[in-house]
Amino acid sequence: MNYATFHPDGTLHLRLIKGTHEIPKDAVEVDDALWLRLIRENDGIWSIGADGRITKQLLPAPPQTREDVERLRLAAYAEPVVGSDRYFAEANRMQVMGEEGWETVRDAGIARFNEIQTRYPWPEDHVAR
């Protein structure tokens, strides 16, 4: 049997296991599914409402730095199947070898490059160089 205790403001205080911990009178018994969530999920604040229902409020994601965005963009560009770099490499090879259609491949690379930049925008405090 698993239990949880809560601070006066309703936020989670302790997670307790019967037989391992002394269980206080105000502890709330939690089922196995909720227990697993209480011990595994650390992306929010667990609390108990006036109705006795235990819920989690998600924490806001930390703001991304310029370096974070650049790392995400570079990885996306270089992704071997859906990245933009593969199109540019293929278009370059086609052009050097005199193959037709390299412009279409290049344009697909440009489109994918722009999609990646839209997906990973610079932080608001980023100053253009």
Rank of each mutant, 00 (worst) to 15 (best):
A4K: 04
A4P: 03
H7P: 06
D9G: 12
D9T: 02
T11G: 10
T11Q: 15
L12R: 03
L14Q: 12
L14R: 06
L16T: 00
I17P: 00
H21A: 08
H21T: 03
H21P: 06
P24E: 00
A27L: 04
V30P: 01
D31Y: 02
R37M: 09
N42H: 15
D43E: 13
I48V: 04
G49D: 12
G52E: 11
R53L: 13
R53N: 02
I54C: 14
K56W: 10
Q57R: 15
L58M: 10
L58Q: 05
A61N: 15
P63D: 07
P63S: 08
R66V: 14
R66I: 14
D68H: 15
D68Y: 09
V69T: 03
V69S: 02
E70Y: 06
A75H: 06
A75F: 08
E79P: 03
E79S: 11
V82C: 12
Y87L: 06
R93V: 01
M97H: 06
G98F: 03
E99V: 08
E99T: 08
E103G: 05
T104N: 02
V105I: 12
A108L: 07
N114A: 14
T118E: 14
T118Y: 13
P121T: 08
P123S: 07
E124W: 01
D125T: 08
H126M: 03
V127M: 01
R129Y: 10
